[in-house]
Nucleic acid binder design. Structure first.
Length: 541
RNA sequence: UGUCCGAUGGUGUAAUGGUAGCACUGCAGAUUUUGGUUCUGCCGGUCAAGGUUCGAACCCUUGUCGGACAACCA
C-alpha cells in the first residue's frame, strides 16, 4: 500500500496490536484471522462490519482469513444459512482462505482432547440436574460450591463420558465439565461445561454424535487447530477470554497461541440487530423474508440497492473501537447515495403522474432528446428520450396557488422540462373531486436544451415522461422499518410496537421512460429529482 | 457488596506527554438545465476532582456514569 506519509490513516487498536505482534515476531510473524459465523440466521450489517474487519485486516497485513462455521448447536443451525452466509461474503467482495472450515470437522479432535483432560483430572462428568448445577455455580458476587462429580475417579469419568458419547443417556442427564475454579469471580471459570448430551441430527455430521461441545470448548480450540493468530470477536466475549486462554494452555505444546481481541459490535439507530428479533420479524410476517429490502441483513440491503462498495466504505467510516456505539442509520444511507451518485445512470420516472398537454406542439411529432446519463461520469454517455405533445409530470410539481419559494409549475409560470424545452403553464382542468386532471402549457421552440437561443432563465427544472412513449410500472417506496430510534431499548414496550406502518408504499401507476424497458434485475438508477431505485427480483415484464 | 471493560462536539472516530483533527448530521452561502452533486464557511467536544510534569484527552489516584458476566446458546 502506497499511502503518502501525510495521508497515512491512523491505526485502530487492533491494527496497533497486530503491528506490535509483527515487531516482536509473535507466532513467526504470521497473521491469520477468521470470521466465525454460526449458521443459524442470515448475516446482517453488524456481521458486515466484522467481515470487513477480519478479511480487511488479512488483506492489509498480507495474512489469511478463514471462514469458519461455528456449528456446534445443531438445534438451531441449518445449511440454508451456510449457503446464504457464503453468498453474502462473496458478494461483499472477500475471499476466504482455502475452503470453508467447520467447527464440526474438529469434533473428533475435541473429543480426544476431552478424554485427555479426564485422564489428567482436568475434567469430570456431572450427572446432577441442570437446575442444581446452575444453583451451585452461584452468583458473580459470591463463590459457587463444588460439584460431587469433581471427586469421581478417572476410570469412572472415562466410562461415563464414553457412554454419553455412545448415546446411552438421555438429553440433559449429564455434562462434561472442566475442573477450573468454582470460587472464581469470573463465572465462566466455575467449572465450565465442555459437552452436553444432545440426540440431534447435525447438518454435517448427521447422527454421528450424541454429545456436542459448548462454545468455549470449541472456539479457541478451533482457532488453535487452524493456526489463527488473532481471534477477533465482540465485547460480550471479553469475560470468556480467561477461559479461552486457560483451555489453550492445557492443550498447547509450543509457544504458538491465538489471541482473542474484542471490539464493540455495531448498533444502528432505527433498527434492530439481534438475530432473534430479525427472525421474529420474518416469522411473524412483518417483512417479506430475510432479504426484505427493509431488513438490515446483507441480503436485504443488497436487494434494497446497496452496493458492496457502499457497505465497505461504511465499515471504514464507522471505525473500530471498544466503546459501545450507536451509528446513525443516516450514515449508512449516506454511504449508498455517495456510491450510487457516482455510478447510477440518471433516468426519468414519474411516480404520481398528472398529464400535461403542450398545446402548440404538433400532435404526432416525436422528438428524440439526447440526455446525459450521468453528470458525474462522462463515460456513461447519453441516451434517447422521446418528447411528445402529451407528457406526464409529477403531481407534486404543480401548484394552483404556488408560494414564492415554489420553483415548479403553476398558472402563468415558466419552468424547464429537463433536457427539452421551457414551457409556460397557460391553463389547467380539475375533475369532479377538485383534483388537477390536466395541465395546458405552451412551449418555446427557441429554448431547446443544448441549443437555447432565448436567453431565458427559469428557476425550476422538472423531470417528465412522454405520455405516449412510456410504460407503466409498479414502484415500491421504502422507508425505515422502525419509527423509533432505539426500538429494542424500551423495557416495557415490545420492539414491534415501533414498526413504521409507512415503511413500504406500493405505487402502481408510475410512468417510466422507454429506456428502462431494458433494465435487468439488480440494475440501479437515479430517478432524477426523486432518488435511487433498483429493479427488484420479482419484477415482471 | 464481585470481576472485567469503557467514557473526546448531536453521532461516530483520531490525536499514544507537545496547536484537540476528520467524517456524518445541522445551519449559512456559492455554483448548477436534478430544490441532486460539488465547493466554501459556521455551530459544536476531552465525565469530575485531585496528583505527576515546563507541558496531560493521553500517565497515577479517587469518584461518577455506562456496558458485559449468573444457557446443558453463540
Amino acid at each position: 500500500m502506497d499511502i503518502p506519509e501525510n495521508e497515512k490513516r491512523s491505526l485502530n487498536f487492533i491494527e496497533s496490536i497486530i503491528e506490535e505482534n509483527l515487531r516482536e515476531n509473535k507466532n513467526e510473524g504470521r497473521i491469520h484471522l477468521r470470521f466465525p459465523p454460526e449458521p443459524n440466521g442470515y448475516l446482517h450489517i453488524g456481521h458486515a462490519k466484522s467481515i470487513c474487519l477480519n478479511f480487511g485486516l488479512a488483506e492489509s497485513y498480507n495474512g489469511l482469513c478463514n471462514l469458519r462455521f461455528d456449528d456446534t448447536n445443531p438445534e438451531k443451525e441449518d445449511v440454508e444459512y451456510v449457503d446464504s452466509i457464503m453468498e453474502d461474503i462473496k458478494w461483499l467482495g472477500f475471499e476466504w482462505n482455502d475452503k470453508p472450515y467447520y467447527a464440526s470437522d474438529y469434533f473428533e479432535q475435541l473429543y480426544e482432547w476431552a478424554v485427555e483432560f479426564i485422564k489428567q483430572g482436568k475434567a469430570y462428568v456431572d450427572d446432577q440436574p441442570q437446575e442444581l448445577i446452575r444453583e451451585q455455580r452461584g452468583v458473580p458476587t459470591s463463590p459457587g460450591v463444588e460439584s460431587p462429580g469433581r471427586k469421581r475417579s478417572v476410570e469412572e469419568n472415562l466410562k461415563l463420558f464414553a457412554a454419553m458419547k455412545n448415546g446411552e443417556y438421555p438429553d440433559g442427564s449429564m455434562v462434561l465439565r472442566a475442573k477450573v475454579d468454582m470460587a472464581s469471580p469470573n463465572m465462566h471459570m466455575r467449572d465450565p461445561i465442555m459437552y452436553r448430551i444432545l440426540h440431534q441430527k447435525h447438518h454435517r455430521t448427521g447422527d454421528k454424535w450424541n454429545i456436542y461441545p459448548m462454545y468455549d470448548w470449541a472456539h479457541g480450540q478451533s482457532d488453535f487447530i487452524e493456526g489463527i493468530t488473532h481471534s477477533v470477536c465482540t465485547l460480550e466475549f471479553e469475560v470468556h477470554r480467561p477461559l479461552y486462554n486457560w483451555f489453550l494452555d492445557q492443550i498447547a505444546t509450543t509457544s504458538y497461541r491465538p489471541r482473542q481481541i474484542e471490539f464493540a459490535r455495531l448498533n444502528l439507530s432505527y433498527t434492530v440487530m439481534s438475530k432473534r428479533k430479525l427472525l421474529e420479524l420474518v416469522k411473524d410476517k412483518h417483512v417479506k423474508g430475510w432479504d426484505d429490502p427493509r431488513m438490515p441483513t446483507i441480503s436485504g440491503l443488497r436487494r434494497r440497492g446497496y452496493t458492496p462498495e457502499s457497505l465497505r466504505s461504511f465499515a471504514d467510516r464507522i471505525g473500530v473501537a471498544k466503546r459501545d456505539n450507536v451509528i446513525d442509520v443516516g450514515l449508512l444511507e449516506f454511504s449508498v447515495r455517495e456510491h450510487l451518485n457516482k455510478i447510477a445512470p440518471r433516468v426519468f420516472g414519474v411516480l404520481n403522474p398528472v398529464k400535461v398537454v403542450i398545446t402548440n406542439y404538433p400532435e404526432d411529432k416525436v422528438e428524440v432528446m439526447d440526455l446525459i446519463n450521468n453528470p458525474e461520469d462522462e463515460a456513461a454517455g447519453s441516451r434517447s428520450v422521446p418528447f411528445t405533445r402529451e407528457i406526464y409530470i409529477e403531481r407534486e410539481d404543480f401548484m394552483e396557488d404556488a408560494p414564492k419559494k415554489f420553483f415548479r409549475m403553476g398558472p402563468g409560470r415558466e419552468v424547464r422540462l429537463k433536457g427539452a424545452y421551457i414551457v409556460k403553464c397557460e391553463d389547467f382542468k380539475k375533475d369532479a373531486d377538485g383534483n388537477i386532471s390536466e395541465i395546458y402549457c405552451t412551449y418555446d421552440p427557441e429554448t431547446k436544451s443544448g441549443s437555447d437561443t432565448s436567453g431565458k432563465k427559469v428557476k425550476g427544472t422538472l423531470h417528465w415522461v412522454s405520455a405516449t412513449n412510456s410504460f407503466d410500472a409498479e414502484i415500491r417506496l421504502y422507508d425505515r422499518l422502525f419509527s423509533d430510534e432505539d426500538p429494542a431499548g424500551h423495557k416495557e414496550v415490545d420492539f414491534k410496537e415501533f414498526l413504521n406502518p409507512e415503511s413500504l408504499k406500493v405505487l402502481s401507476n408510475c410512468k417510466l421512460e422507454p429506456s428502462l424497458k431494458e433494465a435487468k434485475v439488480g440494475d440501479k438508477f437515479q430517478f432524477q429529482r426523486l432518488g435511487y431505485f433498483c429493479v427488484d427480483k420479482d419484477s415482471t415484464e
